[in-house]
Design a binder for these strands. Structure first.
Lengths: 207, 207
DNA sequence: GTCTATAATCAGATAGAC
DNA sequence: GTCTATCTGATTATAGAC
């Protein structure tokens, strides 16, 4: 019967999806823990509980594994953006995004890639979904930065691109893990501390 | 004759020193360019112009090569500290150190190591000269931080250790190279921009 | 698609002659 | 100490049976 066939196909497709989700989740954790170079494909296979050859049926290379993890985190970022309102003051939205980013990082869910690896870069830049996400995110952040500069809440002497990079850099700020290792502060406290150094700076405020 | 023997020994020792300096210099550049994982011992040997086996007569492992580069940059940092006066306001000295660090980084002379590599960490922590330098530098920075907080120029709500990490992190800030790649600003402008975000933050100043 | 077994390659480290 | 040649192990990727 057509229905049962359709059901079976859908079921198989679902199984495939679940399996790939498990793979990407494992890759994401390993990339967050050890980074791209230190992560081995054997580890990924062992973590998921399948054979390495099976992994290569799903993803053609280690770079593609990493790209899948980046697409995943980009989707999560876009989901978070969707929860923000353009009615909110732009500076508040910027803080919210940076806070979210650091929370993901502290939770051990932020994959970290070496920015200088060329084959990895090529794979990422060939990934349409990732690049589209990156452009959309950058566009929204850029608009908020300019709006916040226009309303006087963010310094106008900084080029918007410098502000954008500064915000992005919070996703791989070593200060977060160092403070976490120190054990003197909770994750929430660390987030607020670094948020303060990022937006208010180290200098004392005059007012 | 005793003198000629002494001279010959000294000469040989000098040659050895020069050779090792060349090795460390090459390692330093490669570590700054590509990082520890991407740097290969073959590359180092080729850059210096000697065989790989000869390299291993000087340094017993790749980790020790990296440690030697770190000792070198630590010495340079200490030399810079020696040029600063304790008569200067502590906040000015802090800015000067961060500025120096970023200049070294932008010049492509700041070796970068993965903070999570455990065998590398062990080698570094076993290196007395490096650890002594690290402690001395941290002590001096820590004293300036506390003095600057006491005189009201640096925010008192930030734990000194968080300030210290924030300053250290400028040595591997990806914002520097991203802005450099953009080509819109000179190195000096980039340094002042990032110095501004570090000390003044992204927010507009009220006063 | 999943597996076992293996190829292919690369990088850190060493042997041994000079 | 320097060299050539080699070892050893780890890692990415694949072949081929089921």
């Amino acid at each position: 019967m057509a229905t049962s066939v359709a059901t079976r196909i859908s079921f198989k497709a679902q199984m495939l999806q679940v399996r790939e989700d498990a793979i990407i989740h494992a890759v994401n954790r390993l990339l967050a823990e050890k980074g791209f170079d230190a992560m081995t494909v054997d580890e990924v296979a062992a973590t998921v509980g399948i054979a390495k050859a099976s992994l290569y049926k799903h993803f053609p290379s280690k770079e593609d594994l990493a790209a899948a993890a980046m697409v995943r985190v980009m989707r999560r970022a876009q989901d978070f953006f969707a929860s923000l309102s353009d009615q909110t003051p732009p500076q508040d939205n910027l803080r919210a995004v940076v806070r979210w980013t650091m929370q993901v990082e502290l939770a051990g869910d932020m994959p970290s890639l070496p920015s200088q690896n060329s084959s990895l870069r090529a794979t990422l830049m060939a990934n349409k979904e990732y690049m589209d996400g990156l452009f959309e995110v950058s566009d929204r952040l850029g608009a908020w930065i300019e709006a916040a500069q226009a309303n006087g809440s963010i310094s106008k002497v900084l080029p918007p691109i410098a502000v954008l990079y500064t915000l992005y850099a919070r996703a791989c700020d070593p200060v977060l893990e160092f403070l976490q290792m120190g054990g003197q502060h909770s994750d929430d406290e660390i987030v607020e501390l670094v948020l303060s150094t990022c937006f208010d700076g180290i200098n004392a405020r005059s007012g």
